[in-house]
């Protein structure tokens, strides 16, 4: 033990902090999921009733629906666009690659509040540049963030703008890690560009696609900042998602018990879904 005391000494700051702000909260919120508590009055045990209540919660149903729809709206175009951009940027003779990459990546590092402010201007119904452009083309103005019908597509557009760069960088790194020898061998075998894409690039990129898909899945379920600052879930509950609903339950309704239940159940489902994506990919890979 004494010989290894430096090991324990060096990992202890991390573990002490983790115990207080990671492990204890984890257990605490598990316990809370069987209770009713607003943080002030006395905690009351309610058994499994929080879990049962999940099934009759209409706002939750809306939130799940919105999460799924929003995810389907933005993830496929985002991943396809990111892959397309990564392919373009991977051309060996390309100059100024870093500048284009930076331009597409900058939205990722921009504070979400700032993104919301700017898109608020662009989306403005009467004075926004998007509606101005539409009307100049003879098309009707769109009530972007103001209508239940358009709130999700408007958010999807922002999400695509914001997150394409992140996925592009991952995919570009994936493409660059593919050894040139595979392509040289394919060319020797007489493979054209499409066959090289189909039989070399796509199979070798599969792990990166899986990673991006899982990250997008997790990101969509826990999406918060974007919705909080752009629509706050509205109009009505048309853009309320699981992440925002969890936040509202916790910090505006102070239903700590119920929020913990939902957080745990969501985390469990997301975990299962991620496993499913991973399994799916390993089966396909055979």
């Amino acid at each position: 033990m004494a010989a290894h005391r430096h090991f324990y000494l060096f990992i202890s700051p991390y573990f002490i902090l983790f115990a207080v702000l990671g492990l204890y909260p984890l257990i605490f919120s598990f316990v809370l999921s069987f209770a009713r508590w607003d943080g002030l009055t006395e905690l009351r045990w309610v058994g499994f009733s929080n879990f049962v209540n999940l099934f009759g919660d209409e706002v939750l149903l809306d939130a799940i629906w919105n999460t799924v729809v929003l995810g389907l709206m933005y993830v496929p175009p985002m991943l396809a666009g990111a892959f397309f951009l990564a392919i373009l940027l991977n051309a060996s003779w390309l100059r100024c690659r870093a500048w284009v990459r930076a331009a597409v990546f900058l939205p990722v590092i921009t504070p979400m509040v700032v993104v919301a402010v700017v898109f608020g201007l662009l989306y403005d119904f009467e004075h926004g540049i998007l509606n101005y452009g539409l009307q100049r083309l003879g098309l009707p103005a769109i009530p972007w963030l103001l209508s239940e019908h358009w709130s999700k597509p408007s958010l999807a557009l922002v999400l695509i703008w914001r997150w394409t760069g992140y996925n592009m960088v991952l995919m570009l790194a994936g493409l660059q890690s593919i050894s040139k020898e595979f392509y040289e061998a394919a060319v020797l075998d007489g493979a054209g560009p499409f066959q090289r894409m189909r039989h070399v690039t796509l199979p070798l990129m599969r792990p990166v696609f899986v990673f991006c898909t899982i990250m997008s899945l997790i990101g969509t379920v826990y999406l918060f900042d974007e919705i909080f600052v752009l629509t706050a879930g509205g109009p009505g509950t048309s853009s309320m998602n699981i992440g925002l609903y969890l936040f509202n339950l916790s910090f505006s309704d102070f239903r700590f018990g119920y929020a913990s239940t939902l957080a745990y159940v969501t985390a469990f489902i997301v975990f299962l879904a991620s496993l499913f994506v991973l399994r799916f990919q390993s089966r396909e890979g055979d």
């Binding site: 702000l21 204890y24 909260p25 605490f28 809370l32 700590f256 913990s260 957080a263 997301v270």
Partner: peptide, 17 residues
């Protein structure tokens, strides 16, 4: 293993702590 834990699960307890 702790890398898998999403932040929202511990949001309330961390605040309480």
């Amino acid at each position: 293993a702790t890398m898998m834990i999403p932040g929202v699960v511990t949001l309330i307890p961390v605040f309480v702590v």
